[in-house]
Amino acid sequence: MRHLLSTRDLGHDEAVAILDVAEDMADVADREVRKLPTLRGKTVVNLFFEDSTRTRISFEAAAKRLSADVINFSAKGSSVSKGESLKDTAQTLAAIGADAVVIRHGASGAPAVLADSGWIDAAIVNAGDGTHEHPTQALLDAFTIRRRIHGSAARAKALDGVSVTIVGDILHSRVARSNVWLLSSLGAAVTLVAPATLLPIGVTEWPASVGYSLDAALAKRPDVVMMLRIQSERMHDAFFPNAHEYSREWGLGDERLRTLAADSIVMHPGPMNRGLEISSGAADSPRSTVLEQVANGVSVRMAVLYLVLSGMKEGQS
């Protein structure tokens, strides 16, 4: 794997292979020495133009567990605030000798620009770009679902027959997009539920069914309910009347929680708006995988960094 830009680029087998490597990485977390020498001497740059805590520290922990050197770069307090272009930043990182660049950017497609521009030879990993994609989040979600269903026998398995309902701000959500492509290529049946104002144009073309009513979707007893964060920083329009009404119609409250099937799970990519899209009762229930998702994120990102940074430099595919 040269770069990881989009889950659309991943075939079924490649996605399963990444999840299998992540299983091996997860085993390392249980060892006495939780560090592997694999990426010794490689430099990984975390290039974050947008705020992020969990994704950045997750990538940092992943790179450090593989013995890579990590340079954290956030746009605040850097030359970007003085007006430096993405090109100049990329060329600076190339001159420093970055082997991989993990990039989060507010503009959709920024990681692809970096990968195709020729400004830098490093492997590019998309850590969230605008409203486009967040592939490692989707991979860790798939990993979490697979582990919950298959336990320690998860290796080599896909998600055939698993029903996943994704609820909330689909319009702005790169997590939803990456999950739709990945989960459907792994064989899961994805349903999107949102107010009509928070569904993007063209959503009917996606490999997912679409509904407006959360209660109707939950009545079908999905195996997985994934709640998305209401992204107030991207809410520049009146998408719904008020928070209370959103919560009543599309929030996962204690009452809806009780209607879920016994072994179904509740996911949230974080950070959560408790009381808005998810109640504390749901977030802290045994069904909730929120903290598992964070822990699994490190294993999945270790797998991705290993796969983009190992292998021959010449003649790569």
Binding site: D20, V21, E23, D24, P37, T38, S310, G311, M312
Partner: peptide
């Protein structure tokens, strides 16, 4: 005991998939 992640020739060969330890 899988040794993939401890190899010194990862840059010289196609990417190897590790096996469980």
């Amino acid at each position: 005991l899988d040794v993939t992640m401890y190899r010194d020739d990862l840059d010289r060969n196609p990417t190897r998939a590790p096996s469980p330890t």
